[in-house]
Design a protein around this nucleic acid. Structure first.
Lengths: 146, 146
DNA sequence: CGAAATTAGTTGTCACACTAATAATTGATA
DNA sequence: TATCAATTATTAGTGTGACAACTAATTTCG
């Protein structure tokens, strides 16, 4: 029956997502990048747009606020980012990269791109378009806020 | 540049996989299914093929052995599965569902299928084929054992 | 103005993923 | 047969994810 077949996608999706993460993480470790994948993703967001609130970063990264708090704590402990008080709203904390943080992003970016490209061997441009379209459709299908 | 564009897939993939899991988990919680998604995936494997070693289940589920040990511990605490000594090899433990475990699978299967189908609204049969093909290609591209 | 609702961030708890290290057992081989 | 490498499962440690409950600050509105 149809449903039985469709049912398998969640397993394959989860498995692949984990492998992508694991592959990148082990490349990071081998290269002594000294950050995790998730820490890296936050660094990159901050690099593009310096000074954001944690709330904004959480939205942009798709992580929830508690998770983000913990990742940010680590980034600060590593002296890659710093918390600054928001000029208008004392509830908020703005986040900025430190010079070391900026340097880290610039230093690692090319290597990260290479690592990420490995996944796309034997796949076409069309595949990429379809892939992102389907993922985004699933994502919005399951958006419970709507 | 091309690489910059391709680079985004890992974010979308991770984000979608998490949402799929979260959507299913919150449906499970609402329905008081009393198991997590990952516990469910192990139950289903055991249901199809009673009595497997943890090693076999780990391979089939795509989880590593330490993770599996923990999930199995929980399933046993919930009296849904039981460990049995392997008749030939005393290193192994065979796993079997308890009657309660079997009943749980039978009871929840239809509801789980409905939950899983939600993701595929607005998508075609072709999309499904492409999706699984691309995921599996990525999965094997990143297989570090080869 | 001042109480109530909202918002930003943190902490605690449980579950899962991955690595490395360890224990127990098995099997191969010298 | 005695030794050693391989295999199965577990434990410990770190990081992440989801949820709930909490604090502090701000906004809303009677």
């Amino acid at each position: 029956m149809l449903k039985e077949k469709y049912n398998q996608y969640s397993f394959i999706l989860d498995r692949t997502a984990r492998r992508v993460k694991q592959f990148a993480q082990s490349s990071f470790s081998q290269g002594a990048f000294d950050v995790t994948i998730d820490q890296w993703s936050i660094l990159k967001i901050l690099y593009k747009e310096d000074a954001m609130t944690q709330k904004e970063i959480a939205e942009k990264s798709g992580k929830d606020q508690p998770t983000l708090t913990r990742i940010v704590d680590i980034l600060i402990k590593k002296r890659l980012a710093q918390r600054v008080e928001h000029p208008q709203d004392r509830r908020c904390l703005q986040l900025k990269l430190t010079p070391e943080g900026k340097q880290k992003v610039e230093e690692l970016s090319p290597a990260v791109k290479e690592i990420r490209m490995k996944a796309w061997e034997n796949l076409s441009e069309d595949d990429f378009e379809n892939f992102t379209r389907i993922l985004n459709t699933i994502y919005t299908n399951l958006n419970q806020q709507v």
